[in-house]
Design a protein around this nucleic acid. Structure first.
Length: 473
DNA sequence: CATCTTTGACCCGGG
DNA sequence: TCCCGGGTCAAAGAT
């Protein structure tokens, strides 16, 4: 099967679980031994490990080969080959380059990676990062896994640019694709370091798969993502909306909880394998089998999951590129990647939601948002001029939608006041090619006073003031 | 008991 | 003005 073909290429590492009486076994031996273990259905598989793993079907042979040997080097890797496969619908990554911050830890981590095979990951990660020539108002990341045989073109209209590459992320993702059996609880499809709450699911016309809607659980964080998942659990497409206005939540103790506890299925936690250091995982990633990965099998791949699995850098590259509000898909993107993981263990951000499932009621969340304001401000300042209203004009807004409105090639973002019982809404859209020109339209009147956050910098709290926005209340 | 997912209904912009 | 369809809400159920 094609799927297995992909696995063969990517996950070919013999399981370490084998009681290695004799220090080394040939691959054949390992294979043979493994084949006996899994169910008959896997007999034909050359992958003795992780029988549960389901990967996106690599429709493109070359892609798999590329995956197998990510020898490309240098930051430019992503650009060179990607153009060659613009038509490769199986591996499409829509990514809006955004300026991103690279932490020191990231740098150091990258350095370390470079010493090992991390360099490869970095390259791969870079391959994931696709620059979008146009400055759009929203950063969306669209990851489309190649699993879908009918891969539909990820044409996100004007907002997106479909890009593919030899080592397309999708394929890489695919290589790490896991069976996403919707876990009953905590199906955080796509672990990306953030916590998501599913708030809807729908069968979208034109899409063969149901689309799930997720919101970042962080208070006042406008980020949402849509995940289309095939019936067998594979992620067909992921679309991110907005930018996180907060740092990544941090698990109390190294990947053991926090984000993981949410992102990972319950059994994952039970296994306690998440305590594995990512660094360790990184070393094993491309070889295919680490227990952690196994435990992720039902996590669902995703931009995140997959990345986090075999190619965390890839994942992070994407996430970081977006999360950090970066403007540029510079080679550093790969750094952001690792940075993300670094952050996970650093604990610099979870003041808002340090523990998994600490989420309280919406009210509490809103209140908590106050505490985040400071962070927001900081984050926003790092962002591009896009979506300046996230933090607001003194009020707090939550983005609840976005659409392409006729007559404007740029997407219109919809916000609502986060204050309870306040029905004020507004939508923001680019007014022209000028990335700084926005039109903000307000609806309704605030039935409350402008919130005053202690951490809020009055000066910074008025993103509208920059003159880029003209409001018409 | 708290939190999260599910899912049908509703909202609303666009054609 | 009506209909379509994507997105969101929120009650109910699950964990």
């Amino acid at each position: 099967m094609e799927v297995r073909e992909a696995e063969k290429l990517v996950i070919a590492k013999p399981v370490a679980s084998k009681p290695s009486t004799s220090s080394f076994k040939t691959f054949t031996e390992l294979l043979a031994g493994a084949i006996t273990a899994p169910p008959p259905s896997f007999a034909e598989s050359t992958l003795p490990i992780r029988p549960k793993t389901v990967r996106f079907k690599p429709k493109v042979a070359q892609s798999t080969s590329a995956l197998a040997s990510p020898q490309v080097s240098g930051p430019s890797v992503s650009c060179s080959s990607e153009k060659n496969q613009l038509t490769d619908k199986n591996s499409t990554l829509i990514y809006k380059p955004l300026a991103k911050l690279v932490s020191k830890t990231t740098v150091s981590l990258l350095a370390n990676l470079g010493d090992s095979d991390g360099g490869r990951h970095q390259e791969v990660a870079q391959a994931q990062l696709q620059l979008q020539p146009s400055e759009k108002a929203d950063n969306h990341i669209l990851v489309q896994a190649p699993s879908n045989p009918k891969q539909r073109i990820t044409s996100h209209k004007d907002n997106f640019q479909t890009v593919s590459h030899s080592k397309s992320s999708a394929q890489i993702l695919g290589s790490n694709q896991r069976l996403l059996l919707p876990s009953t609880r905590g199906d955080r499809s796509c672990y990306d370091g953030y916590n998501w709450r599913k708030y809807g699911q729908k069968q979208v016309k034109g899409s063969e798969y149901p689309r799930s809607y997720y919101k970042c659980t962080n208070p006042n964080c406008p980020v949402k993502k849509k995940v289309e998942r095939s019936y067998d659990g594979q992620i067909a497409e992921i679309v991110y909306k907005g930018e996180h206005n907060h740092p990544k939540p941090i698990p109390p103790k190294r990947l053991s909880s926090g984000a993981l506890c949410q992102a990972y299925p319950s059994h994952e936690k039970e296994k306690g394998k998440e305590t594995l250091l990512w660094s360790t995982s990184l070393l094993e990633m491309n070889e295919g089998s680490d227990s952690r990965m196994d435990s992720q099998s039902d996590l669902g791949f995703s931009t995140n999951t997959n990345y986090s699995g075999k190619t965390p850098l890839v994942r992070d590259a994407i996430i970081a590129g977006r999360v950090n509000g970066g403007v540029g898909g510079t080679p550093d993107n790969s750094c952001g990647v690792s940075a993300d993981w670094e952050e996970v263990s650093r604990g610099d951000a979870d003041e808002v939601e340090p523990n998994c499932r600490k989420r309280k009621s919406k009210d509490l969340a809103i209140e908590a948002g106050e505490a985040v304001q400071g962070i927001q401000q900081t984050q926003v300042s790092m962002q591009t001029s896009s979506e300046p209203e996230i933090v607001g004009d003194g009020f707090r807004w939550r983005k609840y939608g976005q659409k392409i409105v006729k007559g404007n090639p740029y997407p219109r973002s919809y916000y609502r006041c986060t204050s309870l019982k306040c029905n004020v809404r507004k939508h923001v859209e680019r007014a022209s090619d000028d990335p700084n020109a926005f039109i903000t339209t307000y609806e309704g009147k605030h039935n409350h006073e402008m919130p005053r956050s202690k951490c809020l910098n009055p000066a910074a709290s008025d993103p509208d003031s920059p003159t880029h926005t003209k409001s018409k209340p």
